[in-house]
Design a protein around this nucleic acid. Structure first.
Lengths: 224, 224
DNA sequence: ACAATAGTGTCTCTTAGACAATATCGA
DNA sequence: TCGATATTGTCTAAGAGACACTATTGT
C-alpha cells in the first residue's frame, strides 16, 4: 500500500507597511527547490507530541520564531498536491508583530503581500487563501488582531491594524466600545505615545492573564 | 522511524426525540473491540482522492449513508490517542435527518444523546465535543440546521430544530425574519401540514440551487 | 363556538454608526 | 495661537425580541 506523506505547514502572518504579509522561505530541497513556499516540514512522531507541537517546532527551526498564537487551520490532502505522492498537510496559522520576525534573525524569511499572492508550489496558494479568510473573519468579531501588535500600542494603532486586516475603515466609537467589552486591554499608567504634534495617545497592553510572556526562546504555546 | 497511523472519523449527527444524537458503532477489531465509537477508518491513498472522499467512503461503508453535508472539523493527533502508536485522524462532521439513517438499513448504528456522552474510546469524546461546539456555533448564525430536516418541513418544525440545537427558545418573529433573509427556502404551492386541530402550516423546501438531490446511492459531496 | 397553533403587524429596547464637542500635544 | 489627532458625549438608524392580533384548522 502506498505511503502517506505527513507534513505540517504554517501560514505566518504579519503586518508591514499597513499590509498583511505572509512569511515565505526558499525551498532547500526537491520538490520545487529555490521556490518561495510556506515554512513546513515532516511530522517527526518520535519527537513531536502532536501536530501542534510539530508545527511549532517547524516554525522555530525554519524562522526562529515562537508564536504565542498558533491555531490549526485545516488539513489539506490528496494525490495531486505533492509530486512525491499522496500527501497530507495539517496547516496552522500564526500572527506575530513584524519586529518578532526581524529579531528572530533569519534574514532569509521573505514577507510577501498576502493579497494577490501567486506562484506558490503545492497547494500553498489555497492554504494561504484559507488562512486569510479565517483571519479576516475572526478579526471582524474577535480580539485576534492584537497578536499583530507589539507589547504596547495605542488604540488608534490597534484600530489601524483592524482596518488593514478588514480592508475598510471602522467606526472609531464602535471600535472602542468593542475593545472595551472584550476587556482584554489595560492602560499603562502614565505611559503615552509622545513626540507627535497633537494630543498624545494612551498606551495599552494585554491584561496579564491574556499576556503570553514568551521570549524567542520560550517554548509554550497557546491557542487562545 | 515510527509510522504515522492515518485515519478519518465522522461525527454523524441527527435529531431524534428533540435531542441531538451521535451515530456510533460497535468496533469490530482491536483496539477496543465491542466498544461504541465514531465511524472511522484508515485512509486508502490508492482509493481516496483526498481525506474528504475518504470520510465519505468510510461513512458509506459503515453506515450506508451519503450525507449532503460533510465538513472538515479538525485534525486530532498525537502519541497517546491510539494504543497502536502515533496517530492522526482528520475528523469530519455530517448532519442528516434520522429517516436517512433508518433507510440506510444498517441497524447496528446506535444513536446516542450527544450531550453528556461518555465512555468513548480514543479521543472520540473530544472530537464529539468539538463537533457539537461547531454545530451549535454555526447554528446561531447560519442555515446549517436545515440539513437535519427532511425534504419538506414547516417553519415551526425548523424552528424547533434550531431550539433543540441551541438549547433555548428562539423568538418566532426574529427567526422567521432570519430565515427570510437567508433566502434559501421556498414554499411548496398548496402543500400544507394537515391533520392537526389548528391552522395548518405551510410546507417549505430548499430552493433548488441549494438542494442536494442525493439519493442513498449517489456519491457526490457538497460542503456548503 | 372553542382550543390550539400558524402567520403577521407593531412597539420597544439594544446596539452600531454618524456627528460633533472637548482635550492636549508640538510648532 | 494653530494644526493635528486623541478621547468622549450624544444623536440617529438598524436590528432583535416582546407582545399581541388575526387566520384556519379539528373537535
Amino acid at each position: 500500500m502506498a505511503e502517506i506523506i505527513c507534513t505540517v505547514d504554517v501560514v505566518l502572518l504579519t503586518l508591514l507597511d499597513g499590509q498583511l504579509r505572509v512569511a515565505l522561505l526558499r525551498r532547500d530541497h526537491e520538490p520545487f527547490p529555490g521556490v518561495l513556499a510556506l515554512p513546513g516540514g515532516y511530522i517527526h512522531p518520535d519527537q513531536d507530541g502532536d501536530t501542534q507541537v510539530a508545527a511549532a517546532r517547524v516554525l522555530l527551526e525554519k524562522t526562529g520564531i515562537v508564536s504565542p498564537y498558533l491555531e490549526q487551520l485545516a488539513t489539506f490532502s490528496g494525490r495531486g498536491r505533492d509530486p512525491r505522492g499522496w500527501s497530507l498537510s495539517i496547516c496552522y496559522y500564526a500572527l506575530v508583530p513584524t519586529e518578532v520576525i526581524r529579531l528572530a534573525g533569519h534574514p532569509e524569511v521573505v514577507l510577501v503581500p498576502a493579497d494577490g499572492i501567486a506562484g506558490l508550489p503545492f497547494d500553498h496558494q489555497q492554504i494561504v487563501a484559507a488562512a486569510l479568510e479565517r483571519v479576516r473573519n475572526k478579526s471582524s468579531y474577535s480580539s485576534l488582531p492584537v497578536y499583530l501588535c507589539g507589547d504596547t500600542f495605542t488604540l488608534p494603532q490597534l484600530q489601524s491594524v483592524y482596518e488593514a486586516l478588514l480592508g475598510e475603515p471602522v467606526n472609531k466609537v464602535s471600535f472602542r466600545r468593542k475593545i472595551e467589552e472584550f476587556d482584554i486591554l489595560e492602560p499603562i499608567e502614565g505611559a503615552m505615545e509622545t513626540g507627535k504634534a497633537h494630543r498624545p495617545a494612551q498606551l495599552y497592553r494585554l491584561k496579564s492573564r491574556y499576556r503570553n510572556r514568551l521570549s524567542l526562546t520560550d517554548r509554550g504555546l497557546g491557542t487562545g
